[in-house]
């Protein structure tokens, strides 16, 4: 489906990653498995940030959210909606969003909950928060991120663990009648859920070929249809930000959709696949690219577990983007 959320704007994007780095290139130097060595080189994921033993995802989320609240001089009691998109909640219940609400000292006049979505979760989160605050008034906070530890030591996890990195982002959303809003597409296909899923034990199971073909078929179709539906030309877009699954997917999508790579923002090399955080991390990590422009129009595209995929066209002030903080 295609649609448009009018009267809302993104007023800030913050990203926080753990300081600890797992260097994939160093790791494959010390192992024999040729398949894993090849995969690391082909996917282009040089390193990933991973949680230290005592770090939690809610700690990172609290830092990211506090940064944005302070940078935008928000009154935290104006926050009516707090959504945390995550596949790794800290407890089975309640939502980690409630733990974050406590840490942020946000008052009770707030609707806080988790959403279980993965690599397409950022755009979905924008839509959820955007549509809710249009009803509740006040301000909305979208937080994304999955907890990723130093997992390759666990042989059960397999080589695919080397694809994933940890990063948490906070996006501030406000009502602004003058805003161009968010034009979007949104798709879900539960009939293909078994191509990519996470077991109760936390193991990721993936049919890599099928997922790659999904990114080259359905995702590319959605990008082309979005451009056509909203009568968007390449010249209308400053940068494209695709989910950072790996090098071949990002480059393959750009090639298929005839998008020049110099307009495609990249973060997978340094941060890996950060799931629902990959789009905002790619924006924040490329802040030097657009800091001279007053505002930027971005074409976003998320895709992954579900299967789910989506696109969004947003216009944001370049002042709304903050550099990545490591903690």
């Amino acid at each position: 489906m295609f649609g448009r959320y009018e009267g809302i704007k993104i007023s800030g994007i913050e990203s926080v990653v753990p300081k600890m780095i797992f260097d994939n290139y160093d790791y494959i130097e010390g192992i024999e498995d040729r398949k894993t060595k090849k995969q690391v080189k082909l996917t282009g994921i040089r390193q990933r940030h991973v949680l230290e033993e005592k770090q939690t995802i809610s700690q990172l989320a609290t830092v990211a959210a506090n940064n944005i609240i302070n940078n935008l001089l928000w009154d935290r009691n104006d926050i009516r909606v707090l959504v945390f998109v995550t596949q790794t909640p800290e407890l089975s219940a309640p939502s980690t969003a409630m733990i974050i609400q406590k840490e942020l000292k946000i008052g009770t006049d707030c609707f806080a909950f988790d959403v279980n979505l993965g690599c397409a979760g950022y755009i979905s989160g924008l839509e959820i928060v955007g549509s809710l605050i249009k009803n509740t008034g006040g301000k909305g906070l979208l937080i994304t991120g999955d907890a990723i530890w130093d997992i390759p030591k666990d042989k059960e996890v397999g080589k695919d663990a080397l694809l994933f990195g940890c990063g948490v982002t906070a996006t501030a959303i406000e009502i602004d009648k003058a805003s161009e809003g968010i034009r979007y597409s949104q798709f879900t296909d539960g009939s293909r859920y078994d191509l990519l899923y996470i077991t109760k034990g936390g193991k990721t199971v993936m049919d890599g070929n099928a997922v790659l073909l999904f990114s080259m078929n359905d995702v590319c179709d959605a990008i082309k249809e979005t451009m056509s539906k909203f009568e968007i030309e390449d010249s209308d877009i400053d940068y494209y930000v695709f989910h950072q699954s790996q090098k071949m997917s990002v480059e393959g999508i750009a090639y298929e959709c005839k998008i020049p790579m110099d307009k495609v923002l990249i973060s997978y090399e340094e941060y890996g696949n950060t799931s629902s955080s990959s789009i905002p991390i790619s924006i924040c990590s490329n802040i030097s690219e657009f800091s001279r422009k007053k505002s930027i129009t971005l074409f976003l595209c998320g895709f992954g577990i579900g299967l789910s995929w989506n696109t969004a066209i947003i216009k944001i002030s370049s002042d709304a983007v903050f550099p990545i903080e490591s903690i």
């Binding site: 995969q39 049919d207 071949m248």
Partner: peptide, 13 residues
């Protein structure tokens, strides 16, 4: 046995 996603990525590359 090794015809998998890594092999396909290798062909694409």
């Amino acid at each position: 046995e090794s015809w998998d996603s890594v092999a396909v990525l290798s062909i694409i590359a």
